[in-house]
Simulated assay, not measured.
Amino acid sequence: MTIRLDYFKHADPLPLQALTAISGYLRETDLDPQLLSLMELRASQLNGCAYCIDMHSKDLLALDVSLPRIHLLTAWREANVYSPAERAALAWTEAVTRLPDGETLQRCYVELSEHFSSRAITQLTFAVIVINSWNRLSVAFGREPGQYRPGDLDGAMKRALERFADLRLGN
């Protein structure tokens, strides 16, 4: 793929900082980092985002996730390497990414609520929303995979989160 536009170079910084701040916030919650990365990888697979697939596969490896759990993610329903809570979160990821009929969403929500608190469900949903946003930017503008290394974005997420915390506090 050829890069069409370097959105980090040409976009107004505020929307990118907002997305980065949400990503940073999610890293600071009680959500399991492996679950969060599995969800990000699954949404990226659904959206065909090569850059994010590369990124989240590397993040999972850095978290010492076994190769079968990474490689079998596209067939998670048939693989026995995911817990019931992970399966519920992956179903929710797919439902929020694809936005199927209300009946499907309701079924996924009920299953999710058996494993997660309302606060965690909200956080999981924001995780799906933000990765879908990053996927759309990266696919639309042709972001090249291969350069990302785990931890590359930690500083940017921390700075963006601090900036938004300062705005919330009126600083």
Rank of each mutant, 00 (worst) to 15 (best):
W134C: 02
L63H: 04
E78F: 01
D101Q: 11
P13L: 05
L161K: 12
E114V: 02
L35N: 01
L112W: 01
I53H: 00
R143G: 05
L72M: 12
V128K: 03
S118C: 03
L137I: 09
L16T: 08
R69E: 03
E103C: 01
D64Q: 14
Y7H: 11
W92N: 05
L63W: 06
R159K: 14
L16Y: 04
C108T: 15
S44D: 08
A160V: 04
D30P: 02
Q147H: 11
M157T: 03
L36G: 01
T93Q: 04
Q123K: 03
R77S: 03
I121A: 09
S118F: 05
R163A: 12
K58W: 07
A91K: 14
M39T: 06
L90I: 14
E111D: 15
V81E: 03
P33Q: 12
L153I: 10
M39H: 00
N80M: 13
D59A: 12
G146F: 13
G142C: 03
R77I: 02
T74A: 10
S118R: 12
P100F: 08
M39I: 14
R143F: 12
C52L: 05
S133A: 15
C108A: 15
L35Y: 01
E78P: 00
S66D: 08
D154F: 04
P100N: 13
V81L: 01
E114C: 08
L35F: 01
W134T: 02
L169S: 11
E144D: 09
L124I: 12
Y7R: 04
D12K: 14
L36S: 06
P15H: 09
R107Q: 15
R107K: 12
L90N: 08
G170R: 11
C52T: 07
L31H: 06
Q34D: 09
L105R: 07
L153A: 10
L90V: 13
T74C: 04
Q45C: 00
Q106V: 08
L19V: 06
F126S: 02
A165Y: 04
T122K: 04
K9I: 04
C49D: 09
R143E: 15
I53R: 01
E103Y: 02
V96H: 05
P100A: 12
L137S: 05
L41W: 02
S113H: 11
E114K: 10
V81R: 02
Y25Q: 09
R136S: 10
L35E: 01
